[in-house]
Design a protein around this nucleic acid. Structure first.
Lengths: 242, 242
DNA sequence: ACAAAAGTGTTGAGAGTACACCCATGC
DNA sequence: GCATGGGTGTACTCTCAACACTTTTGT
């Protein structure tokens, strides 16, 4: 009841009885990954009217004992089986009519799953959960299209001033792989020399000494994220993806 | 009930009955202004236990018919009498124990009031609503200190890549006044020549032709915000304060 | 030898930063 | 005439953008 009594002066508005009944509160998840050189997100097929058969964002109710983030992590784990990944609150959507059945306020979170992670555990059978390329999304239930749009915008912005891009890759990766992540999300080509120069100047990755034999061409050096160096940057206020 | 049915597979968790009862949902407001060369925000004194006599952020319940932003604007209007100002969603706080009396999830909004606006309408008598300098805040109720901390951080960030700073000033202002806003919020001194060069190069303000006779020294030129020019920048993706 | 991706430097333009003096006014 | 804040320019550094060829491997 934050701020209730301090503000409950009679006459300040019509606040009698049922006008501020308790709404339902959910968390919805925008779970991004990159596969087949495309930015994808996870959708589930709804089984209930009025959106039966439509695709929607995964999510669920916030339980009485859970913080919002804990609730989001639990849903994430239930959907994908992964839990130790990047997750950030995106925005809270609360138009009164966004769900035709009841007043539902939803706190949207966006998550990022590395491309080598195997997800979609047994509990989510293939029929009702699928990765969709953001370039070819189906019609979505509720106001989920708007939520997705906003999530993609945020992801693009964060890419430029944080290291979220690294979250989409395996622990060891090549610079070309990293560049492809950036190109896929930003939707444009980047200059290879400039990209490498910039990333290396950030001093957040280090060579592993190993290479990736990818087939028929020159093997690429493998790098890994350097936490120690990253912390330095964070203190300087440059990057803060966690 | 967004995402409920799609996710309500039995066995996905213990979701029986009262574990996800409806929480209460409020909006809380961080209302910034600059007065006496200091960044200030509006607090109200609570009249009810368990925080009786403590200062807290203004706010109140979201009504059944209101969107979150409408709700925030209504509270803002009730507190200050102003309505046509910058307002933006900040973050949603939902720790289960943030209010000792009940589960309350609060959507925080931050607002910016120009320094020449007269606020605090009659309904809020001086005894229970006051501006506090962010440098000397009292202990706050609930988790409001954390909320305020986050709001200040966001304000600082936005100052650097948007034109929020202009929102704190009257419609006509001098470059020195604008610079003081930046210095107060960023907490550091800026070089006068560089500041003017940068602001003028953004091409978002224009001279009014008038000057401000401030007393005992050279009169300063008055500028005003140039919406047309601003829109150009917005299209280029540089500034987006609205 | 050739196909395919990896890897590598330089140059020019623009932005940011540091820095010191004259100007217009009221008293 | 002096105190007070208003107003102005230049030089250096650093970052960003444009741009093309050689290297290493598998076949």
């Amino acid at each position: 009841m934050a701020n209730k009594a301090g503000r409950s002066r009679p006459g300040a508005g019509s606040r009698n009885g049922s006008d501020f009944e308790h709404p339902l509160v959910t968390v919805d998840l925008i779970i991004f990954t990159v596969r087949d050189r495309e930015l994808k997100l996870l959708l589930i097929k709804r089984g209930d009217p009025p959106f039966e058969g439509m695709w929607a964002l995964p999510g669920g109710f916030v339980r009485a004992s859970e913080s919002l983030e804990v609730s989001a992590r639990r849903e994430l784990e239930e959907e994908t089986g992964v839990s130790d990944i990047f997750l950030e609150q995106l925005f809270t959507f609360g138009e009164p009519d966004r769900d035709p059945r009841a007043r539902v306020i939803t706190v949207a979170y966006f998550a990022i799953i590395a491309s080598d992670r195997r997800v979609l555990r047994a509990s989510a059978d293939a029929a009702d959960a699928r990765w969709f390329s953001v370039a070819e999304l189906p019609k979505l239930a509720f106001d989920h299209e708007r939520i997705v749009e906003y999530a993609i915008e945020r992801l693009r912005n964060k890419l430029e001033y944080t290291t979220v891009g690294f979250q989409l890759l395996p622990a060891e990766f090549t610079l070309s792989e990293l560049q492809h992540i950036y190109e896929v999300i930003l939707g444009k080509q980047l200059d290879k020399r400039n990209f490498r120069k910039k990333i290396l100047s950030l001093d957040v990755i280090q060579e592993t000494g190993r290479t990736k034999m990818d087939g028929v061409h020159r093997p690429a050096r493998l790098y890994r994220f350097s936490e120690a160096r990253f912390m330095k940057l964070r203190d300087k206020g440059i990057l803060f993806p966690f």
